[in-house]
Design a protein around this nucleic acid. Sequence first.
DNA 1: AAGGAGGTCAACCGCTATTGG
DNA 2: TCCAATAGCGGTTGACCTCCT
Length: 255
Amino acid sequence: MGRAPCCERSGLKKGPWTPEEDEKLVAYIKKHGQGNWRTLPKNAGLARCGKSCRLRWTNYLRPDIKRGRFSFEEEEAIIQLHSILGNKWSAIAARLPGRTDNEIKNYWNTHIRKRLLRMGIDPVTHAPRLDLSALLKPAAAYYPTQADLDTLRALEPPLASYPDLLRLASALLSGRPAAPAIGEHRQQQLLPGNNHNSVGSGVSTPTSSSPVPRLDHSTTCVATTFGGGGASTDDVAALFDMQLSELLDVSDYML
DNA sequence: AAGGAGGTCAACCGCTATTGG
DNA sequence: TCCAATAGCGGTTGACCTCCT
């Protein structure tokens, strides 16, 4: 597969699109459909390469694009999906109707990533980087102390406001299985094949080679085998991380 | 008021995947 | 099966904007 010569051809315009160019592109696609991006600019009377036209259309001009600030629900979904899919922006975008991969990528890099870092959460692994992470260290993971739970209880807003996290923390303390939590429910909803709001047909499903496959394990398995030695520290960390990120995410919105 | 710093986001770059001859 | 063309993806850049000093 050779490299596409694309924009390197001289005489093709680069940089920001003018309203006139937008008009031409929209009018052409409305009339003829997307078709062949390579020949589209010529047929539409645009001095742009096909790649540039495709990008402009998919990221900006498409009529179904939702513009404006991301809602809390969207942001929450992005964080959850990113913990499952990693930097698969197109796969994440396919699960957020009206949002483009570029928009989500930008939003992640400029907002969410920084906020997670500020909150002490690693945006790549989604693992807590707070002192709370002591709960997840191998030596303490299965037998956290009462002091550890007290730390969680002292959180503002109160941990009691988040029964799922509290339930998991209590399970950590008692060593008994945690009941299915909201994170599990959401993960079931968000995992490929379980989403009914998915748009587009070319959604790639994560494979074993996914960059962040940690949460491919069933959280139910983690929860029910918890305390019985069946769950790895990573599994527990992943589940706890999901709950914690939900807690911290909500608290950030309250600031 | 000026200008420097930092944030935002549209657009580009370079690569891989897919398709079709 | 091979190879070229094309589509699509994730990472990066840079112009523009806002905020701060």
